[in-house]
Nucleic acid binder design. Structure first.
Lengths: 135, 135
DNA sequence: TTCTAGTTTATAATAATTCTAAAGTAAAAA
DNA sequence: TTTTTACTTTAGAATTATTATAAACTAGAA
């Protein structure tokens, strides 16, 4: 298991280390593979694993603070729920709309040869490639 | 102005040509440039331009029928509202998160040199490139 | 015409998310 | 260590986009 400084993650997100926040941070960041989740799925995992209670609002607040601090990213998927990703490097995604499953694609796996210029007065922030899957 | 067979669009979507549906179809399809919209923005435009009333549910139903029939596409943008696009060809998008504005990119403007294989038992349906903009 | 199946509409229901205000807690100050 | 203060958690209410419902309406077939 990857060793992570949980307190540092919390402090750098402007969060005091409370019981709930430490558990959320451990669950999200003490893992080797990247993790895709919605607030709902995260809540399910937390209530199974943990002894303490989590109000939904607490999970929302904590996840957003992590995102704001750059410890989580949000994935562009259409649909009602918001998807988060513990992989904060530039990368791409497979998306299986039948199972709503997201799979990371490392940046090096995709090479783009040609891309249009940004429109008037704008710059390119980043390029995301979405590969939609079917059976 | 592009000449479009509105009745054909409606019939092929399984919709009878009512007053409301004809107005919606004309507004969406009798134009030269592609149009990006949410149900809310479409409603605003319709109520300004038209004399007759539109219940939100009617707009939702009509837009979804057009989408199902392939006359509209839905754009993958995160956010609460669903974005639709009158451009139904395979294409890509600039997205300006500051203004929530979408701009079409023709498929020929993007060339991808390398792409990973689809995971086990899945096939690639399509590839969408999203170019996020900043100032 | 008359009839029937499909439509519109206002309103209620749902679902994800955000807000609120009271009770609880971490950490600084005394 | 106690007190104090500012931040947190929580349950539940509010909000927002969307979908469902059911009664009144209408296009088009008979």
């Amino acid at each position: 298991m990857k060793k992570v400084d949980i307190l540092k993650k919390l402090r750098s997100s402007g969060l005091r280390p409370t019981k709930q926040r430490v558990e959320i941070a451990k669950f999200l960041f003490e893992r080797d593979k990247t993790f895709h989740f919605t607030v709902e799925s995260l809540e399910n995992h937390l209530t199974k694993k943990s002894t303490c209670k989590f109000a939904l609002a607490t999970i929302y607040n904590t996840v957003h603070a992590f995102k704001k601090a750059g410890h989580l990213s949000e994935v562009d998927v259409r649909g009602k729920k918001t998807y988060f990703d513990t992989n904060i490097t530039n990368h791409h995604h497979f998306y299986d709309s039948e199972t709503s499953e997201l799979i990371d694609i490392d940046e090096s796996e995709v090479v783009i040869q040609k891309i249009p210029k940004a429109p008037n007065g704008k710059k390119i922030k980043n390029v995301e490639v979405f590969i939609n899957l079917k059976n």
